[in-house]
Amino acid sequence: MVRTPLTPEERLRGERLGLLLRQARAGRSMAAIAAHAGISAETLRKIETGRAPTPAFFTVAALAGALGLSMDELLVSCAAVPEVVPLAG
């Protein structure tokens, strides 16, 4: 099966998610957070570094719970920034 290439927006959203997770971890070990979320430390590392920019919903939900983040907070922080289109005139 061939995977569809990610759009620039998907990559950017993945980078934002990774940054937010790193900030929320705030010095706690990657292994401890990953274990609490029920994922491997390598999976968390890939998400945090942007190598896995589109993790499954349940993975994100588990990480949010382990880090004390709300899904709403993640959505707002990682949502695509709307493109500004100049008005024709």
Rank of each mutant, 00 (worst) to 15 (best):
I33R: 01
I33C: 04
I33P: 02
A35E: 12
A35C: 01
A35T: 08
H36T: 03
H36V: 00
H36I: 00
H36R: 03
A37C: 03
A37V: 00
A37K: 02
A37D: 02
G38S: 06
I39D: 08
I39E: 05
I39K: 02
S40G: 15
S40Q: 06
A41H: 13
A41Q: 15
A41N: 09
A41C: 04
E42K: 14
T43Q: 15
T43M: 11
T43R: 09
R45I: 02
R45G: 14
K46Y: 15
I47H: 05
I47Q: 05
E48S: 10
E48R: 09
T49K: 02
R51P: 04
A52N: 15
A52C: 09
A52I: 00
A52L: 14
P53D: 13
P53G: 05
T54E: 12
P55H: 08
P55Q: 07
A56D: 12
F57A: 13
T59P: 00
T59R: 12
T59S: 09
V60K: 01
V60M: 07
A61H: 14
A62E: 05
A62I: 08
A62V: 05
A62N: 13
A62K: 12
A62Y: 07
L63Y: 02
A64S: 06
A64H: 10
G65P: 03
A66W: 04
L67C: 07
L67E: 09
L67I: 06
L67R: 01
L67S: 10
G68K: 09
G68Q: 11
M71L: 15
D72R: 07
D72F: 03
E73L: 14
E73H: 12
E73F: 10
E73S: 09
L74E: 01
L74G: 05
L74D: 01
L74R: 01
L74H: 00
L74C: 06
L75H: 11
V76Q: 12
V76R: 11
V76D: 12
S77W: 07
C78L: 04
C78A: 07
A79E: 14
A79Y: 14
A79Q: 15
A79V: 14
A79N: 12
A80T: 11
A80P: 07
V81S: 08
V81Q: 13
P82G: 05
P82L: 09
